[in-house]
Design a protein around this nucleic acid. Structure first.
Lengths: 110, 110
DNA sequence: CGAACATATGATAATATATTCATATAATCA
DNA sequence: TGATTATATGAATATATTATCATATGTTCG
């Protein structure tokens, strides 16, 4: 059951190696959505851009925790940031993010 | 910055408590997609139903690890199972799952 | 320039998660 | 029924993740 020879049936059905990387990326993407704090941040930004302090207030969480999560969200390309004086203004990166959120929401409600 | 009074600006913008549970569920759902092994299982089932041994072979992972993840996927309602003799046959629960996978894939490729 | 405000970041501690190992349960078949 | 095959599950370990604390960086303003 463990052994798989080249050209075997198992080999033929095995997930193509080419796709493996892509599947990893996919898991990484969903992992970012898979945290309550990050989802709440995304949802908070759903209505429009906000600065860090506002997000902290909305979520009633401390600034450091929020900043750490904002960094993850930014790295994942789900949000974008710009500076405005001493404020950092965050916003959803694009409508794609909204679509994914809406999609998940729909699945839950079904 | 930490303190939020009732009726304050912060209070007004705070994410509605009603929505909090839903956001948690959403995070839980995405969390299930957010693991490489589970995504590979889902993708393996994308083409059609398979039994546990086949999934093990395709993913080249041991049976226990796969079973544990199958249980999580099933609990989350993403796959369904039926017994056929000594085999357990697993399949994607519905097209919704496919849609979510496709959606994420699209985001990555953008 | 120095104080005050806004945000970021590194280290740590607490918690969650995945895989493995050993074993249990379920079904078939000789 | 006993052996064999297929799958599930509990416990333990290894690893990853999150929040917190302390502090650093960047910006404005007096």
């Amino acid at each position: 059951m463990e052994e798989i020879r080249k050209g075997s049936e198992a080999e033929k059905h095995k997930i193509a190696n080419a796709a493996e990387d892509e599947l990893s990326d996919l898991a990484e993407l969903f992992k970012v959505f898979g945290d309550s704090t990050r989802i709440r941040i995304l949802y908070d930004l759903y209505g429009g851009e906000k600065n860090v302090t506002e997000i902290c207030e909305d979520l009633e969480m401390n600034q450091s925790a929020i900043s750490h999560q904002l960094r993850l969200l930014k790295t994942a390309g789900l949000i974008r940031a710009r500076r405005e004086g001493k404020l950092m203004i965050y916003a959803l990166a694009d409508d794609h993010v909204k679509t994914i959120l809406a999609m998940g929401k729909e699945h839950i409600e079904e």
